[in-house]
């Protein structure tokens, strides 16, 4: 009996170690994703917390060798849908005041961190980009975010959004086209115009 208990605790210890190495390292990416989904730091914290609780509980079902970050993002997204679907914003409706408030909140959060000072003036420039991204229809915004900001592959994104790779591809194409139109002035103003493409 005692041996069993010891065996169990050493197995649990291995699981804890692996979980910390594989899963907890992605906490900043998950928190950022949660922030963008909820637009509220306290909801984002809850969402990340619940995601890790669930992930730990089902860690045995995580397929070793696959991308743990993608697995965690999918759990977080499902949690978000279950929890916030009721309050999800209507498609096509963009609350610019909410985006602006949220943006300033995260900027303030950032200024508590050590990197803040040098990034502060950059942050002021970011707002326009952030608003442009947030104003896209959700199906486009989501794939762009997962691809360009989080760096997931098409296959991982397809799995997360439960759509075929072809759909991901076409959403990326159409979403980027919309975004490009919105960011045209920004790109010119900040030296991202076509001529300086290299």
């Amino acid at each position: 009996m005692k041996e069993n208990k010891q065996l169990l605790s050493s197995q649990e210890e291995i699981k804890q170690k692996e979980f910390q190495q594989e899963a907890i390292t992605h906490i900043h990416a998950l928190y950022n994703y949660a922030l963008h989904l909820t637009m509220n730091p306290s909801d984002a914290e809850d969402l990340v917390q619940e995601t890790y609780l669930k992930a730990y509980k089902f860690f045995n079902s995580f397929e070793r060798g696959t991308n743990c970050k993608a697995w965690l993002f999918k759990i977080l997204k499902n949690n978000y849908i279950n929890k916030f679907r009721k309050n999800a914003r209507e498609p096509g409706k963009v609350d610019y005041d909410l985006i602006k408030d949220f943006y300033h909140t995260i900027k303030d959060v950032q200024s508590d961190t050590t990197e803040a000072e040098s990034d502060f003036f950059h942050s002021l420039l970011h707002e326009e980009v952030y608003q442009a991204l947030q104003s896209l229809p959700e199906e486009f915004r989501e794939v762009i975010q997962l691809c360009d900001i989080e760096g997931f592959t098409y296959e991982e994104i397809a799995n997360m959004v439960e759509s075929p790779i072809g759909t991901v591809r076409s959403r990326l194409y159409r979403g980027r086209k919309l975004l490009r139109a919105k960011l045209e002035d920004y790109a010119k103003k900040h030296g991202y115009d076509t001529d300086s493409g290299e």
Partner: peptide
């Protein structure tokens, strides 16, 4: 243009650290 859009997003979107308490 498409490549620039991707670069703008990567470079310009604010990333924050998860709170230490979390």
């Amino acid at each position: 243009d498409a490549r620039n859009t991707k670069v703008i997003l990567r470079e310009r979107i604010v990333r924050v650290q998860a709170p230490q308490t979390l």
